[in-house]
Amino acid sequence: MAALGTLAVMGFRAPSPDSLYETAAVTRQDIESTVAATGKIQPHAYVDVGAQVSGQLKRLHVAVGDKVTAGMVVAEIDAEMQAAKVEGIEADLARLSAELAEQEAGLVFAKRNVERHLTLSQTSAVSQLAFETTTRDRDILIARIDASKARIRQMQADLRAQKTALRFARITAPMGGTVVSVDAKEGQTLNANYDTPLILQIADLDTMTVWTDVSEADVVKLREGMPLWFTTLGRPDRKWHARLRQIQPAPRRPDKKAEPKAATQSGNVVLYTALFDIPNEDGGLRAGMTAQVFFVTAASKDALVVPVSALSEGRVRVLLDDGKIAARKLETGVRTRFLVEVTRGVAEGERVITGVKAPGPPAKLRVES
């Protein structure tokens, strides 16, 4: 009976605050408020290298992954047709130049003949008809010479065009970088009459650009130059830090072929493109990777923080050491979904009430004999 009485007294003792409330300690840590978005990593600079003349791809000097420098020959097209055209035009130019020289010699004679007939006509030694005939012959030669000079200029222009085409048969790299794709094969016939055939693509992989899609609800929180960081799916433990370079003023135009599908998947959400660059000397970033981007809108180092769940209209309840509860009004700073910075109102180590514990089932009392 004495033992039962003692247990009864203990059962009706007032419960402790720890058994009634969920609490969290006020701690110090870094805190930042971010806007999350998803982006694609692409080379900062790249160029598509194509053929400007038609013909058979005779030689391909590079493969995917090769490093190239600006001006380096990367491919050659069979240029026998262009070379033959250049040779033919040069021969025509030589013939026209000879004809022009003959005409100019005839013009010298015609001018002297006109002068002689002019002198003789003044003494009536020749007829007026003879003088007019020599004048006509001179004028005809002048016109023929002008026509020959015009044909020569046209031929010289054609020669420059054909020499340029011949030079284009040796395809050079317009920039230095890495060959990221090759779209043609040796022996393939390229037709550049209607469209520029793509041979390969060169990209500068030392600097990458992240194209980030930001919703219209979040884009108003961004500003150029703000800090950010991102991770990749393959390296979620590594953070790359950068600063926002540009926010494009209009939403990116979707591909017309993919627009109906994209509209279905995105639910007609308007997305703006935010761009930033990141050095890639170690090659850890590759084109096409997905980046989980966090734009830092506010941050604080070594700040006092409490859970957001402890706040109620700017106040918290603090569980004191003696078991009493004190209400405190807080001054707050940076706020995230789960934590809030406290600049005044609580001290490090104090415990704030975040909720009420759910009552458990009644304890069973077993008396052993």
Rank of each mutant, 00 (worst) to 15 (best):
N268R: 02
T264S: 08
S300F: 03
V308S: 09
V269R: 06
V308E: 11
D277P: 02
G267I: 00
G283Q: 11
T264L: 12
Q265I: 07
R286M: 13
P307R: 04
T297A: 10
E281K: 15
S300Y: 01
F276Y: 15
F295M: 08
T264D: 03
A287L: 03
F294H: 15
I278P: 03
V269Q: 12
A287W: 00
A298I: 04
G284S: 15
V270A: 08
A291N: 12
G283P: 11
D282N: 12
A287N: 15
L271Q: 07
G267Q: 01
G288H: 14
N268M: 01
G288V: 08
T290M: 09
A298T: 02
Q292K: 14
A287D: 15
A274V: 11
F294D: 14
A299M: 03
T297D: 07
V270W: 00
F276D: 10
P279I: 13
A287F: 00
L304P: 02
G283N: 12
V305I: 10
L285P: 10
F294W: 04
G283I: 12
A299L: 02
S266I: 02
V306L: 07
K301P: 03
L285K: 13
T290F: 05
V296P: 06
L304F: 03
V270Q: 02
A298P: 04
L304C: 05
D277S: 15
A287R: 10
P307Y: 04
F295S: 09
A303N: 09
Q292C: 02
V269W: 00
E281M: 05
A274Q: 08
D277T: 14
F295D: 12
V293Q: 11
R286S: 14
S266Y: 01
S266P: 00
N268I: 00
P279W: 12
S266Q: 01
F295R: 05
T297Y: 07
V293W: 06
A303H: 06
M289F: 08
L285D: 12
I278E: 11
S300N: 12
A299F: 01
V296K: 03
G283L: 09
V305G: 03
N280F: 08
P279R: 08
Q265A: 03
G284N: 13
T264W: 01
K301T: 15
S300L: 01
D277E: 11
G288I: 09
G267M: 04
L271Y: 14
N268S: 06
N280L: 09
F276G: 13
D302L: 04
Q292H: 14
A298Q: 12
I278N: 05
G288D: 13
F276R: 05
G267E: 02
A274C: 13
T273A: 09
L271M: 08
